[in-house]
């Protein structure tokens, strides 16, 4: 994998596949002044084509499956996926349903799992650091 493209700060694209909004507002909270990851240059971008990491929330609803695959395909390589929240990891309270197709790692490969319902902003930032470490490790190989 050519990781030269990642020698600057990571840019993230946020994709909500049917979450309750809890994780999503915590992602924004991580960006805003209290936690402020933007000081490290990490920011949310408006299109997957500019993104290095995909921040994925939610248990993946039927209609979002195809959109999720499309968004993932649009991201340039090298890329990483961070799955935020319990429901994308295991289904959580929605584990049994007629219109959900998760868990998300059956649809696209996931690099870092951040459990929690919702995880605190600190946990999300910790997840970003883990992504970074993982990518660095791979770059050294």
């Amino acid at each position: 994998m050519n990781l030269k493209a990642l020698n600057k700060s990571l840019w993230a694209f946020h994709f909500n596949s049917g979450s309750c909004n809890g994780c999503d507002i915590e992602i924004i909270a991580a960006l805003t002044p209290r936690y402020d990851v933007e000081r490290f240059g990490i920011k949310l971008v408006g299109t997957p084509r500019h993104a290095d990491i995909l921040l994925l929330t939610g248990p993946v609803a039927m209609d979002m499956k195809e959109k999720l695959e499309r968004v993932y395909a649009q991201m340039p390589s090298p890329k990483a996926v961070m799955l935020i929240g319990n429901c994308g990891n295991s289904g959580d309270v929605f584990y049994e349903s007629y219109s959900l197709v998760g868990p998300a790692d059956r649809i696209i490969p996931v690099d870092v799992y951040v459990p929690g319902c919702p995880p605190r902003p600190e946990a999300i930032i910790h997840g970003v650091v883990k992504v970074w470490q993982k990518l660095e490790k791979e770059a050294k190989k």
């Binding site: 295991s90 049994e96 007629y98």
Partner: peptide, 18 residues
């Protein structure tokens, strides 16, 4: 029809994520 409880209900298409 998801709100029905007979054979036209959603039981047959339910998935368990576990």
């Amino acid at each position: 029809y998801p709100w029905r409880r007979d054979e036209t209900g959603p039981n047959k298409i339910v998935r368990n994520m576990h």
